[in-house]
Amino acid sequence: MVLQTPPLQTVESMIPIAEHDLSRKDYASDIDTRWCPGCGDYSILAQMQRGLADLNVAPEKMVFVSGIGCSSRFPYYMNTYGMHSIHGRAPTIASGIKLAREDLMVFVITGDGDALSIGGNHLLHVLRRNVDVKIFLFNNRIYGLTKGQYSPTSELGKVTKSSPVGTTERPLNPLAVALASEATFVARSYDTDPQHLQATIHRAAKHHGAAFVEILQNCNIFNDRAFADYTDRDVRDERLLYLEHGEPMLFGEEKNKGLAVSATGLRVVEADGPDAGLILTHDATRPSPDVHQLLARCSYPEMPVPMGVIRQVTAPTYGDYLDGQIEVQKFRNRADVASLLRGRSTWQVE
């Protein structure tokens, strides 16, 4: 084995802190937001700005990189450095920035079409490499900017402008894709729960390594109420499972239900029933993503929909390995450009 495992510097990412105390408005650029009124993106933007203000991150040390789509307009509204790049490729540009500039905090803002359709390949690889970038995927299950075609997360049979009699393809599950890529941080939140979203942003920002956050986001123009069945205020307690590391997987208004392992996956049991002892305690740090995959596959209406940090494990990042190799090779070999130019052998012409 040639690879030296670099020592883990920290479980938490090094966050560049601003010199002065900053507030939400210090993270807002002076450009007017141009999303449709009522779009879920407004809430996400507000929580991002609040979340970063809480952490007091230095704005000049942050870069937001996006692809193409409604969500990808996001960097314009942040008073940080940013690049609104090309469709699907934000993870590649973000990787290059982070590997060239370890001191910067790099965020990727993407959507379901951008990340899972045209940019699917890059998403797999940025996660498997564990490049220290924070990826926020706004999932609205529709192509909004091109006015209403189905996306790779649209449900089978969904009627959209490009599927007038229903789609003929099955959707991707973003969390399952991230877990299959061995992502070290996988979480889900949604646009209409500001506290939960802010907390999730905090955790992702602090993670040392690639962080993947799916945010369920309502497109009130082309796919209104896509997640309302379980995120509406009056039903969310019954239909969502808020995960906390080290806490039992309980849900329901009275926390009267829980998740237990069944022969074929997970099942719902009564918290005061005979199987109460089988209710699982959430372990986000479990090295194997097996239970995390089972959680990712829980979907309404059969099961509660999980929210929160599903997985967070510590592992060296791509940059840790690369820096480690450079350090070791500098120690082993002298870098001397003049001698490199001369190569293995030279001859003298008199």
């Binding site: 690049m83 290059g96 590997l99 890059h122 450079i326 090779q329 870098a335």
Partner: peptide, 30 residues
């Protein structure tokens, strides 16, 4: 590597140039 060279074998040609653009934008020799 002793010259501080950061090579990145990308997942495809697009990622190869994407990362180089990122490095150039970051102030490196991309």
């Amino acid at each position: 590597r002793e010259y501080g060279v950061r090579t990145f074998q990308a997942e495809d040609e697009i990622s190869a140039i994407g990362t180089a653009i990122g490095a150039a934008y970051g102030g490196g020799l991309g």
